[in-house]
Structures are given as structure tokens and as C-alpha cells.
Amino acid sequence: MTAHSFSVSRLFHHRSFALGSAMTACVILVALMAMIGTPQDPTAMDIAQKMQGPSEAHWLGTDRYGRDVLSMAMAGATVSLAVSFAAVAFGIAFGVPLGLFAAMRGGALDEAAMRISDFIFAFPALITAIMLREIFGPGALNAMLAIGIFNVPVFARVTYGAALSMQTRDFVVAARLSGKGETRIAVDHILPNILPLLIVQATIQLSLGILAEAALSYIGLGVQPPAPSWGRMLNDAQTLMAVAPRLALVPGLCIVFTVLGLNLLGDGLRDLLDPRLKRRRG
């Protein structure tokens, strides 16, 4: 592998980082704007104005109840990002300590912790979501929980693998020799070193979360009306597809744009932050 080919690849990946962060920033900006206000109330119905094409009053037209599609799509960004962010936070809050714990202690506890995460993985995701819905009722919180649960083993594994590979590194051995406790070592030395890896993983899980939230809301398990959401908009649009394909196109493209942005950002971040790649480059 020549240095030359790496610099080209870096340039390319930087490009993807730049594009990804621009797209993501765009979505976040829209989501924040929607929190302050949308052009029109995304829940306000005007049945007389239903199914209108794009016009000056409604840039993207109106839906089956005469709601403004643009405002709904904007408010949908807020909901989508909020659920996805919360699910990632949930995964990190439980997964990272679990992974660290398993890596530091080793032995039977290590085995148990990793078996538990295998075990969670074994449950078919959607079916678990359906059962959760039946027990706790549908809603944004439930969607967050259903997605978050599956983020736990992901972060546990990433943390575990990375932390395990640190065990033999000089600075960890030195810290251990100096008599520091395992928890201290984990927090002071290991965590900062695996942080880049976690950031990359978080970006990936964010984009998966957006897709999962859309799917859950689409089949009626996620965000509930009147709260707007891209998945729900798609569900509403389905019976109208022959009449107004526009209604299915708008939320779909929003999802693709957001997920694409996050994936590009994740790829770029991995190249810039991944210590393994950096080492190889150096």
C-alpha cells in the first residue's frame, strides 16, 4: 500500500465527511427550526383543502386531511432525530459500562455479559417491538425503547472489543502497576482512547435508528398521531399512491437524505478518528 493511494483515499473520505456533515447539519437545522415553528401548524386540518398539489400557500401540497406537507415533513425531522438520539443515548448508557465491565473483569462475568448481549441479539427485533407495544402501548417512548434495547449489545461489543485490545498496551499496564483500581483505569485511560470508536458507532446507530423509527411508525408501532412522523406519512400515503405519489415521495426522500448524510458522516469520521487506520497511515 503506497502513501500516495492513501492520500487519495483520504481526500475522498474527507469529501464524504464534508458532504455528510453538511447534510446532517442541514437536517438538524431543519429539526431545530421546526421546534420553534413550522410554516403552518403540521396538525391543523382543513378537509376542504385536502389533496392539493404544490402551491404558494403549500409548497409541497396538502395531505388527505388538508395538512401542510412541508410543515409535516419538517416536524417529522424533529421527531425522527429525537427518537434516534435518545435510542443511541440509551444504548451508550447501558452498553458501554457493560462492555467495559466485561473487558476489565474477564472470567465468568465476561462470559455472562457477552452471552446476555448475544441473547438480546437473538430476539427478532421487530417482533420484540410488537410485544413491547402490546405491553406498554405504542408511542415515541416505546419506539425509543425498542430501538435502544438493540443498541445496548452493539455498544457493549464495540466497547468490549476495543477495551480488551487495550489491556496489553503500555499505558494500561503502567497504570495497573502504579496501583490504580480497575474502574479508575477504565475511566481515565481506556474510555478516552476508545471514544473515537464510540463516536463512529454512534453515527452508524443514529442512521439505523432513523430507519428503524420510520419502519416502526410505518406499521403503527412508533410515533402516534397527531405527532407527525415520516413513517406515519408514508403509511397515510400508501392507499393514495395511485392518486398522489407525491405524498409518498416527500417523506421517503427525507429519510434517504438524512440516513445518507449520517452514513457519509460516519464513514468520514471513521477515517479521521479510527486509531487503527491512523496507526497504519503513520
Binding site: 396538525t43 391543523a44 386540518m45 378537509i47 388527505r64 386531511y65 402490546e134 402501548g137 405504542p138 403503527g220 402516534q224 398521531p225 397527531p226
Partner: peptide
Amino acid sequence: ARRGGEIVAAQLKKIGVDVELVPVEWAQ
């Protein structure tokens, strides 16, 4: 029910009634 509920909730909001929609399956 699902569609009617969305509309009824939007209408009742106008007379000051705050309606929370609770979709359920038949079993429930």
C-alpha cells in the same frame, strides 16, 4: 376509527378539549 380519531381530535381541539389518541389492537 384511526382516521376518524385524528379528525375528531383536531376538531375538539378547537373547542378547547385536549384529546390524546390511544390506538389499540382489538384484544386490548
